[in-house]
Amino acid sequence: MKQILFLLMLSISISTVYGQDKIIKLSGDTITCKVKEITDDNIKYSYEGEDLINNIHQNVVKEIIFKSGRTQKFSERVIVNSEEDWEKVKITTLESDITGLVKGEDIMAKASSGWSTTNQGKMQMKAMDKLKKQAAAKGYHIVLLITTTGTGGHYGISGGTKASVTGVGYKYE
């Protein structure tokens, strides 16, 4: 009789654990819950036995495994190990792209040319590439662009073409 009761309790506890949705975060953490709603930016969920609705931004979610077995994918983790991964770094001006990520430090990069006829856009791209390399070296996979400046690029202007960019690095938890 004790064995039957034990098996019954075990099956109830297993069905409770496996009868819930699982939010898999890009950090590798798992949230076992009931997904209530998926909006354009957020996933609303509640924990077992609670009425409180929690939000998590889709930027930090890899996938949801629903209790039905269906999987819905959201994002893939961008792995930046060193400056060599600089091309993986994303530059953004949208604050919604960094929601849920961990804020890092300010990063600034400059590029200049000794020739006054050098294209301003070319110097801006060089500065952006330098910014991505600095971000990658610090482990950031996304940079929120704060300012961009440029001067020169025309005949008759001395000092050549200059560009600078400033941003803030962000990464996963």
Rank of each mutant, 00 (worst) to 15 (best):
Q3E: 15
Y47D: 07
I23A: 05
N59P: 06
V35W: 00
E84A: 15
R77E: 15
I24M: 13
I65E: 14
N54D: 09
K88H: 04
Q58M: 13
V61M: 09
N55D: 10
K88L: 15
T32M: 06
I56Y: 01
E50A: 08
N81V: 13
N55G: 02
W86Y: 14
C33N: 04
R77G: 05
E76M: 13
T30H: 02
D41S: 12
G19E: 09
E63G: 04
Y45V: 04
D40E: 14
V35T: 03
F74H: 01
K34Q: 06
E37V: 03
E84G: 09
S27V: 11
I38R: 01
D41T: 09
L52I: 12
T39M: 09
D51Y: 05
I31L: 14
Q72Y: 00
S15G: 05
W86E: 08
K90R: 10
K44Q: 09
I64C: 05
M9V: 09
E83W: 00
N59K: 06
G19A: 10
I38W: 01
R70Q: 08
L8F: 12
L5D: 15
N55S: 10
I24L: 14
L52G: 03
Q72V: 11
G49Q: 03
E83V: 09
S82Y: 00
S11A: 09
I79M: 12
L7R: 12
T71G: 02
S75Q: 15
E84V: 05
S68C: 10
N55Q: 07
N54L: 08
S46H: 05
G28S: 12
T16H: 07
D40C: 05
Q20H: 05
R70W: 00
G19I: 11
S27T: 15
F66H: 00
L7I: 11
E84I: 05
V60M: 10
I4N: 09
L10H: 04
M9K: 07
E48D: 14
D40P: 05
T71F: 02
K67V: 11
I64P: 00
G69S: 09
S11E: 10
Q72T: 10
F74A: 09
E37Q: 11
D51L: 13
G49C: 05
Q3N: 13
S27Y: 00
I43H: 00
K22W: 00
T71W: 01
E84K: 13
E48Q: 10
N54R: 11
Q3S: 13
D29S: 10
L7S: 11
E87M: 08
L26I: 07
S11D: 07
S82V: 04
D40Y: 04
F6D: 11
K36G: 05
E63I: 04
L7N: 14
D85R: 02
F66M: 08
K22E: 11
L26R: 01
T16S: 10
